[in-house]
Design a protein around this nucleic acid. Structure first.
Length: 290
DNA sequence: GTCCAGGGAATCA
DNA sequence: TGATTCCATGGA
């Protein structure tokens, strides 16, 4: 087992793993979190300003393990400066940043993020987590950690072996065909995921939405939460619409607030940091409704 | 039984 | 273009 320790004021496991960006991390009794990313199993624990990462990877290579953690948690980015900038925009955003002060936007594997957010459509987070867990158990590879078996998220080659019926049995519902077709498109290099990172955000959105099941909202989540790492997008779901209406628009019927109106507000107020603003607001609004 | 969930696609006006 | 409807599933 490897152990890697850092000091950080701007990383709180609970905020990182429960702000809605990821679906593969579960809380332990002591408040730490255990999950799988790439080929690593990891337990993340915070004590004071110290963060301890304990885990293992398939190659049992510590240098790779360490570098994967630095990359996944985006540890070279200065979140204190970002939070200060956002807090100056207005008091509402300042409150949400204070509430979610330990959030970091993860660099998640692109294929896993695409599939995960296609599954997220008209779904709830506990059920999304269950589906992704079953997909990994059936099509991923085993890794043993602390005497327990964990499963990596499958590669394109592994998951594209699943038929629509196979996926339906795992509980995907109407999203089964969308996941199947998307896997085939990626496997056949109809869209080559390797070539996407050089595109600007506008062109990237056009390409990403060619995948079945990827509309504007799912697309923006993929761009924000994956290694594509675009902060100039603003995923609008029911929670974000609700919080934007409560804070700025004040329409008595939030269902009548248009996405165009919300997007315009986000562009004006948050600019190039709108993706981060969205995540602090989403996490904050959900906490108020629990 | 009804409503809702990190929506998208098909259909209709 | 813009608004409605349908889509599986499980928990509240």
């Amino acid at each position: 087992m490897f152990k890697y320790e850092i000091e950080s004021k701007s990383l709180t496991p609970k905020d990182v793993f429960e702000c809605g960006q990821c679906f593969r991390w579960d809380e332990n009794d002591d408040g730490s979190y255990t999950g799988v990313f790439k080929d690593c199993v990891l337990t993340v624990k915070k004590h004071g300003d110290k963060i301890t990462f304990c885990g293992i990877n398939k190659e049992k290579d510590f240098e790779k393990f360490k570098n994967d953690i630095i990359d996944y948690f985006d540890l070279n980015r200065d979140y204190e400066t970002i939070k200060n900038k956002l807090s100056k925009i207005d008091d509402n955003l300042k409150k949400s940043v204070e509430y979610g002060s330990g959030i970091r936007i993860l660099n998640q594997e692109l294929f896993e993020t695409i599939i995960s957010f296609i599954i997220s459509a008209n779904n709830n987070i506990p059920r999304i987590k269950g589906i992704i867990k079953r997909i990994s158990e059936n099509y991923g590879e085993q890794i043993e950690f602390n005497g327990n078996i964990f499963y990596t998220f499958p590669t394109v080659e592994e998951l594209s072996k699943a038929s629509v019926e196979d996926l339906r049995k795992l509980g995907l519902g109407f999203r089964d065909k969308r996941v199947y077709d998307t896997c085939q498109m990626i496997k056949n290099k109809e869209i080559d995921l390797e070539n996407l990172s050089k595109l600007d955000t506008k062109d990237l959105r056009i390409v990403m939405m060619k995948f079945p099941g990827v509309g504007p909202k799912v697309c923006d989540c993929i761009l924000l939460f994956s290694t594509l790492k675009r902060f100039d997008v603003f995923p609008i779901d029911v929670w974000v619409r609700r919080v934007m209406n409560e804070l700025y628009i004040h329409n008595p019927d939030e269902n009548k607030v248009s996405k165009i109106q919300i997007q315009k507000l986000a562009d004006e107020k948050y600019g190039d940091l709108q993706g981060l603003a969205q995540q602090y607001l989403f996490y904050w609004e959900r906490s108020l409704n629990k």
